[in-house]
Computed example of a mutant assay.
Amino acid sequence: MLVGYARVSTSSQSLDVQLEALQSAGCDEIFSEKRSGSSTTGRDELKNALSFVRKGDTLVVTRLDRLARSAADLHSTIKMLSEKGVAFQCLQQSSIDTSTSTGKLLLGVLASIAEFEADIRRERQREGIERAKSAGVYKGRKATIDASAVRALRDQGLGGTEIASKLGIARASVYRALASGE
């Protein structure tokens, strides 16, 4: 049985393209979710898919980064599938089929390259932010909490929990706003 797994990172993204590709590939069952792929934690549909597959099945994804963002997570997932007797196939990187030794080798190489590219992308982003900060262009995210409202409520004698409840914010945010003195 072919079992598909589709994932996008945010609720504003669409799963349609992946779902169509998985259906076209002949997947009998498809699990999908809108969750960050930075970790396997909290990805309930991935857990459901991994629990669902049985010996002889093949887990299918459209791209490697839909399953995992780090080589460690990818290898861990593939190892678990292998121990269950489940193959893995990636549609867009069609040579990746863990039922073959070449596919296993290619999977390892591509996973390492993908992780390397993600690290470089994060590094470039950090460098860009630092340049923008030094040029006075980057100021960070706009404040979402009105510090003056927090201080006003504190001046009225309210405690941190009461202020947080009144403003609909976390108590830790109240204390950060008070500590910042903005």
Rank of each mutant, 00 (worst) to 15 (best):
S148G: 09
K139C: 09
S11V: 15
G4D: 03
L74K: 06
G160P: 00
S76A: 15
I129K: 02
A149K: 10
E20P: 05
L110S: 04
V60Y: 00
G160V: 00
A71P: 08
Q93K: 09
L46E: 01
C90M: 10
C90E: 05
E130L: 12
C27S: 08
R126W: 11
Q13W: 06
S95A: 13
V61S: 02
E29V: 14
K142W: 14
G108N: 10
S180G: 09
L110Q: 11
S32I: 04
A143K: 14
D28E: 14
I163L: 02
T102E: 14
A177R: 00
L19V: 09
I96V: 04
E83W: 11
R7E: 06
K139P: 04
I145D: 00
K166E: 13
G181F: 07
V109T: 06
V60K: 02
T77L: 15
C90F: 09
G136S: 08
K142H: 13
E117F: 02
L81G: 05
F88T: 03
G85R: 07
L106Q: 15
A71L: 11
D146I: 03
L105Q: 10
K104W: 14
T10P: 07
V17Q: 15
R151L: 15
E123V: 04
L106G: 10
G136K: 09
K79A: 15
A143Y: 12
S94Y: 12
E123D: 11
A6G: 02
K104I: 13
E20H: 04
I145C: 01
S99I: 08
S24I: 10
T161D: 08
D57F: 03
G128T: 02
L178V: 04
G159S: 08
R171I: 00
R54F: 12
D146N: 12
T98I: 06
A68T: 08
E115V: 03
V109N: 07
E117N: 07
S180W: 04
H75R: 12
G56P: 09
D73N: 05
H75G: 10
L50P: 05
L110D: 07
S82L: 10
C90I: 06
G159L: 05
D65P: 10
